[in-house]
């Protein structure tokens, strides 16, 4: 075909800037090391030997919100924890994504009572909901891969940067 083929023969690949950025973002998406309840144990299991998230480049958990792109809300969020969670989210650098892992984080799950926030989307915007109580590690990995697909399709103009409204 045209110029792409010629360039490919020379060892050069052409793509759009958007795709390149999306590709780069998904290949080094660092989740925050932040566990709440039961799901956190499954999140740990997903990182450990049997499931090994690092096969997909998602294993590097950062304890600091400043260094992470992805917040996995693993477990039920109590009313006391909700402001802390929001505080952590606000500290993360743009662009940032949130996965609500498990039924409690997605909708309150089993606990429809005074203490538990009925879905973490009341506090932070959520990109992917992973169902299960707790979800299997495969389900979490599936959720992160679904997020990757979403991020790859992101347009540069849609991404909101700090202090700038869309």
């Amino acid at each position: 075909m045209g110029v792409e083929e010629k360039l490919a023969n020379m060892g050069v690949v052409t793509t759009t800037l958007e795709e390149a950025i999306g590709w780069g973002r998904t290949r080094a998406m660092w989740p925050m090391l932040f566990g709440l309840a039961c799901c956190a144990i499954e999140m740990m299991a997903a990182q450990a030997a049997d499931y090994d998230m690092s096969r997909f480049g998602m294993e590097l958990m950062r304890p600091s919100p400043r260094q992470s792109d992805l917040m996995i809300v693993a477990g039920r969020v109590s009313r006391k924890m909700a402001p802390v969670l929001r505080h952590l989210y606000d500290q993360m650098a743009e662009p940032k994504w949130v996965i609500a892992m498990g039924d409690c984080a997605s909708s309150g799950g089993l606990f429809n009572n005074y203490a538990v926030v009925q879905g973490v989307d009341e506090v932070v915007p959520v990109d992917i909901y992973v169902s299960g109580c707790p979800p299997r590690p495969e389900a979490l990995i599936g959720g992160i891969m679904a997020l990757h697909k979403k991020v790859e399709k992101l347009k540069i103009k849609d991404v909101i940067f700090d202090g700038e409204e869309e």
């Binding site: 929001r86 989210y89 309150g108 429809n112 009572n113 005074y114 203490a115 538990v116 009925q118 879905g119 973490v120 989307d121 009341e122 506090v123 932070v124 915007p125 959520v126």
Partner: peptide, 23 residues
Amino acid sequence: PLGYEEPQFTFSFEDIDLSKPKG
């Protein structure tokens, strides 16, 4: 009282969003 939020038996997302605070 025990409760915090009524379970919503609807498939209309608008209905759910109306009664739900959002982050």
